Amino acid sequence: MDKRYVPDARARVRKTLTAWEINASLADDVTLSADELLSNAIKHCRMTLTQVEITISVQGGALLLEVTDSDKDKIPVLHIAEADEETGRGLFLVARLADEWGTRHRTYTKCVWARFLIERAPCTD
């Protein structure tokens, strides 16, 4: 996958969240996190001609964002970038925006995921 596809993927994520009527603030956080995780997968994947998949789903009271690639042994590590470093803040940003994040091994791939709690409207009964 090529980084030129990231803007289109980001737009599709945003369109999906809008269709699901997710509030703008949460949609911003999920969209930015999707951009970061997808960009990381493209930049750091060591496999040639790999497919990167992005999935968003609702599970219980949360949105689950998953980015999967075939470089199953290259597990991302949270890094606190120094002030003079030009890169290295993506996963830290995702960790701050999401309610939780992690990785999951699959048979031939790895998945980096982030979970975002959906705020529920107060009951007016």
Score class of each variant (00 low, 15 high):
R106E: 13
P122H: 04
H44Y: 09
I118M: 15
T87Q: 11
D71R: 00
A27Y: 01
I54T: 04
I80T: 15
L38R: 02
L91V: 10
E21A: 15
L63D: 03
I22L: 06
L91K: 00
I22P: 00
D71F: 05
D35W: 07
A34Q: 07
I22Q: 04
A19Q: 14
L93Q: 12
L78Q: 09
I42D: 05
A81I: 04
T18Q: 10
K43A: 07
L32C: 05
S25F: 06
T68S: 12
T124Y: 08
V30I: 15
K72Y: 02
R120P: 03
R104W: 00
L65F: 02
K110P: 02
E85M: 07
K3I: 14
N23K: 13
R104D: 01
T18R: 12
V77D: 09
R120Q: 14
S33E: 08
D29C: 04
N40M: 04
V67W: 03
D28T: 13
A9L: 12
R14K: 15
N23L: 07
R14V: 10
T103W: 00
E66T: 06
E119I: 11
A83S: 10
R89Q: 08
K110Q: 10
D99F: 00
V13A: 05
E82D: 13
I54C: 09
D73T: 15
A27L: 09
K110L: 06
L17K: 08
V6K: 03
M47I: 15
L93M: 14
V77L: 10
D84W: 09
T107W: 00
A95V: 06
V58H: 11
C123S: 14
I75Q: 08
K15W: 01
L117P: 06
L37Y: 04
A62L: 06
R120M: 11
L78Y: 04
L38H: 04
D125P: 14
T18H: 07
S57I: 08
R14H: 10
H105N: 11
D29W: 03
I118Y: 05
R4A: 06
V13Q: 04
I75P: 07
K3W: 00
K3P: 00
T31E: 01
E86R: 15
W113I: 03
I56M: 10
S33K: 04
R106M: 04
H79L: 02
T124W: 02
T109M: 03
A41I: 03
W20I: 06
R96T: 15
R106V: 02
L63C: 10
T109D: 13
F116E: 02
T107A: 11
M47Y: 09
